[in-house]
């Protein structure tokens, strides 16, 4: 179910050269903002929520999820080098599960650490805000990785569709149509954060906790299952 070599290759593809820079721009920016906020305004719970929720969870986590999730498999399918992996005596299930594991690990590393750090810098985890958002980022990392890994096996435009989901569906439609918020990984993970954070903070979600947990699990499992299914029937075509 887990293969060292596949994992090593995927880590290298994800963290090698320019991708690692792209991945660390956002966390770096979050920490810079956190330092600036603390230096200018001192500890303030509402601003902490604004930064961690508005920048961290709404922008940073999905974008890193897109880069890591699609980057774990899409480039290999795109340039056809996946055949070298497929021709090895490895179940394709193992390939997907290993890549999913790596994508989750990378997304979590690049999201939870900076969120926790930024939260600590801004208000020293008062009212459990930093902890709550860190948990939300961790849970969202798992779901995003599964969804975007699936996208990578389904479409050649995986990055675009991933960004359409995270930018247009979650951000634009989520702010206009409240119904769209029920179907958003961000809101599901926020409902866990709501539980952790102290009462009366601005950490709220539109989705009830049991629903959110069930939906998160369902999306992760179904996404992974279908990604395995897609890879088992994959034919490598050279066009475009």
């Amino acid at each position: 179910m887990y293969n060292e070599t596949v994992a090593r290759l995927t880590y290298r593809a994800l963290l090698g050269r320019r991708r690692a820079i792209l991945l660390s721009i956002l966390p770096g920016l979050l920490i810079l903002i956190a330092i600036a906020v603390r230096a200018i305004g001192g500890a303030d719970d509402r601003v902490t929520e604004e930064v961690l929720g508005g920048f961290g969870l709404a922008a940073m986590v999905p974008l890193i999820g897109v880069i890591a999730g699609t980057g774990a498999i899409a480039p290999e399918i795109d340039d056809g080098s996946i055949v070298y992996l497929l021709s090895k005596p490895l179940p394709r299930r193992t390939i997907i599960l290993t890549k999913l594991w790596v994508a989750i690990a990378v997304t979590m590393l690049f999201t939870t650490v900076p969120v926790l750090l930024a939260g600590m810098i801004m208000n020293g985890n008062s009212q459990q805000i930093a902890g709550a958002y860190t948990l939300a980022a961790a849970v969202a990392s798992i779901a995003y990785s599964a969804v975007f890994l699936l996208l990578g096996t389904v479409s050649r435009n995986a990055v675009v569709f991933g960004l359409i989901y995270s930018l247009i569906w979650e951000t634009l439609f989520g702010s206009i149509v409240s119904g769209a918020r029920t179907l958003s990984v961000q809101q599901w993970s926020l409902s866990l954060a709501e539980r952790v954070a102290a009462d009366g903070t601005g950490v709220t979600s539109d989705v009830a906790l049991p629903t959110a947990v069930i939906l998160l699990a369902a999306v992760t499992v179904a996404g992974t299952w279908y990604a395995i299914r897609r890879l088992t029937v994959l034919t490598v075509a050279a066009d475009d």
């Binding site: 920016l29 903002i33 906020v37 303030d44 601003v47 508005g54 920048f55 922008a59 940073m60 480039p75």
Partner: peptide, 27 residues
């Protein structure tokens, strides 16, 4: 694929960073 991600990142991330800072100035 990389170009798509990079263009979106460069155009939107500054906005995501500026808004909370402006909100902070308001408080």
């Amino acid at each position: 694929g990389f170009g798509v991600a990079a263009v979106i990142a460069v155009l939107t991330i500054p906005g995501f960073a500026v808004y909370p800072l402006q909100a902070l100035m308001e408080t």
